[in-house]
Design a binder for these strands. Structure first.
Length: 180
DNA sequence: CCCCTGATTATCT
DNA sequence: GATAATCAGGGGC
């Protein structure tokens, strides 16, 4: 998925950082322990967005990737806005006059909450299938990819399931959960 | 740059 | 009552 472009409502974001969340046996996954709670979309068929509320105030998006019942998904952690800059900057609370006022370009969609806001996510988008109002252009070629532990998770904190394109300034900084 | 804290809600204990 | 797949803003260096 790295290098692919997620499109919604005239904004396009090229993904530079993602994280894999596995199914019922991944302690860091919302699917851990089975289909209970908010993550039931993860257990549905692939190609859907799983949208969840993070820390009460943010919305983050995953792409469901495994067959129904397996519940693995990929969190869209960061990207580079490549189209619809004015809309995306406005959603982040910045003015746009050729460049964002008050924020550097690579921070418009850095971090899952910021990416969700720039993309214009709504809670109602949970479960939606790609191909309608959300599109994803898969990358035509792959360059170098690096991997490491997932950001902020308190369990399974060592598993190298975070992937990013090295050298991209829109990639977020790694933070280990202090209780991990 | 660093560390600390508040915001805000679904889920878990 | 506490925690979390987070972020912004403040103070200190």
């Amino acid at each position: 998925m790295l290098g692919g472009i997620i499109w919604h409502d005239n904004v396009g974001i090229r993904l530079t950082e993602v994280e894999a969340y596995l199914g019922s046996d991944d302690p860091a996954s919302h699917a851990f322990g089975g289909d209970r709670g908010r993550a039931s979309t993860m257990f549905l068929s692939p190609g859907r967005l799983y949208v969840y509320r993070s820390y009460g105030i943010h919305l983050a998006a995953n792409l469901v990737c495994s067959p129904a019942g397996q519940a693995s998904a990929v969190l869209l952690r960061a990207g580079e806005v490549i189209a619809g800059h004015q809309i995306a900057a406005g959603r982040r609370g910045f003015c746009w006059d050729g460049r964002a006022d008050g924020v550097v370009w690579y921070r418009l969609a850095r971090g899952p909450g910021n990416l969700g806001r720039a993309l214009g996510l709504s809670p109602d988008d949970d479960g939606v299938l790609l191909g309608g109002c959300f599109r994803f252009d898969w990358p035509s070629h792959r360059g170098r990819v690096e991997c490491g532990p997932r950001v902020g998770v308190s369990r399974a904190a060592e598993r190298p399931l975070r992937f990013w394109i090295p050298g991209e300034p829109s990639v977020s900084v790694y933070r280990r959960n202090p209780r991990a």
